[in-house]
Amino acid sequence: MTQALPNLIDLDEFLDWYPDGYGRFELHDGVIVEMQPTGTHEQVGGFLGLKLGVQIDQKNLPCFIPRQCIVKPVNAAKSGYNPDVIVLDWDAIANEPLWNKRSTITRGETVRLVIEVVSTNWQDDYLIKLAEYEKLGIPEYWIVDYLGLGGRRYIGNPKQPTISVYQLVDGEYQVSQFTGNDVVVSAAFPDLNLTAEQIFRGGRK
């Protein structure tokens, strides 16, 4: 859902406008977009947040999962993304100029992992955010396409539910893909031990 405003706004105006504790919004080229995920979408994202949180706690990792935060793309004054799940580095957060007042990330090295769960606007995840997260230098990016909505050039033909894990190698993303009973391999969380199908089901037995 796109919010109808008289003029395009920049990220500062968006952050001033953002309603505290209500809804999830992103800014795309000056236009506010309200994120309206389905229940299944939230089950998948919530399950991943839970399992990653357990890993962080059990292994005493120096990172955390914020309830919400905005990721500012490089050289983009009119955009800001609100990932479904993001894992941030406790030490690197001190170098974020907008974190304390705006809960906004501007540096890729602050992020351990970012996850987008695909909705009907799959082009945002596979095209726009993929390119922007790569430019920002985020080391690991997951696209969790639990309904197999993405274009065939991204998830193959015939299309099927797929998890695409992008690892930053020499400044460029290299992708590994997982379906069905494949165990998802993550450099950020090597002991996670979840199959793609478990994630698609949101952990439901």
Rank of each mutant, 00 (worst) to 15 (best):
C69L: 03
E34M: 09
D145R: 05
A94R: 12
D29G: 09
K78I: 07
A187N: 08
V71T: 01
N60K: 14
V169I: 14
Y81D: 01
G171P: 05
D182W: 01
N60R: 14
R102N: 09
V44D: 06
R102Y: 07
V165R: 03
D125F: 02
V44C: 07
V87S: 02
Q36I: 14
T195E: 02
F14P: 05
V74W: 05
D124T: 14
E197N: 11
M35H: 05
D191S: 10
V31K: 06
Q43W: 12
G45R: 08
A188Y: 03
L8R: 15
K51S: 09
I9G: 09
A92W: 05
Y166R: 12
N121S: 15
T110M: 07
T162C: 05
G39M: 14
K129D: 03
K135H: 10
G80W: 05
W90Q: 13
I86K: 01
G39K: 14
D12F: 12
L11E: 01
E140N: 04
K78F: 09
R112I: 09
K101A: 12
V111R: 03
A196F: 00
A187P: 00
E116D: 08
L50F: 13
Q3F: 15
S119A: 07
G46D: 03
G151Y: 13
L15H: 08
L98D: 12
T110E: 04
K51D: 04
W99Q: 07
G203Y: 10
I65F: 02
N193T: 05
D89E: 08
Q198L: 10
C63V: 07
V74H: 06
I105Y: 07
G137V: 05
I163D: 01
Y18Q: 13
A77Q: 12
V184G: 00
G108Y: 05
R201A: 12
K159T: 13
